[in-house]
Design a protein around this nucleic acid. Structure first.
Length: 192
DNA sequence: AGTTCGATCGCCT
DNA sequence: GGCGATCGAACTG
């Protein structure tokens, strides 16, 4: 396993970070997966972003230093993982939407017992946090240190990046801010 | 203090 | 393809 991505990886425009995260490896306590789908949530001119209404207790992490985890509860029951981008003081984060499971398949199956196909273990933002054991308790942690970390791929594999509008939002719905590995079987939904 | 509604998922038809 | 679960943040008054 290579060293975690350094903070400088995250200190860029959110779109650049969202694209660069594709193909990287997300790790938590013996479970891991290849990131195959992301969405960018911008600090300005993005009504869908939680940071759109400014700095609050909830959005504090998004405005903070890059390379940290923003985890929030959606629909009262699912946890969603974001990685904070942009310099300290500037809002912007990347929602991790889908993983291709790699290590710790037994643990993932234990946490998601009704799933039969490997590609269904982590092909959604709520599914991947459940599969890897990521919860609200991880909000604000530094992913350059752990226990959640992100690593370069062991060997570089060529892939094509596809772009679409983001999934499940109503505000700023047409912005092309969803990025995924074209043709990957673990992408959450087929939307173009 | 009450209401609305969401960056989802899985079960039902 | 439709819908219920489940709860907290943000907004209304």
């Amino acid at each position: 396993m290579k060293a975690p991505l350094p903070r400088s990886f995250y200190t860029h425009h959110t779109v650049r970070v969202a694209r660069a995260l594709l193909g990287k490896i997300l790790v938590h306590e013996g479970t891991s997966g290849r990131i195959v789908e992301t969405e960018a949530y911008l600090g300005i001119d993005d009504g869908a972003a939680h940071s759109a209404h400014g700095l609050t207790e909830r959005t504090r992490v998004i405005f903070g230093p890059p390379g940290h985890a923003y985890v929030y509860l959606i629909y009262g029951m699912y946890d969603c993982l974001n990685l904070v981008a942009e310099p300290d003081g500037v809002a912007g984060c990347v929602l991790i939407r889908a993983l291709e499971p790699m290590d710790g398949l037994d643990q993932m199956r234990w946490r998601r017992p009704r799933v039969t196909r490997v590609e269904d273990l982590a092909n959604g933002p709520g599914k991947l946090t459940r599969a890897l054991g990521i919860t609200l308790g991880h909000n604000g942690i530094d992913v350059t240190r752990g226990p959640i970390t992100v690593h370069p791929a062991e060997k570089s594999a060529a892939f094509e990046i596809a772009v679409s509008h983001r999934i499940g939002i109503t505000k700023s719905a047409d912005l092309p801010l969803r990025f995924f590995i074209k043709g990957n079987r673990c992408v959450s939904v087929n939307v173009k």
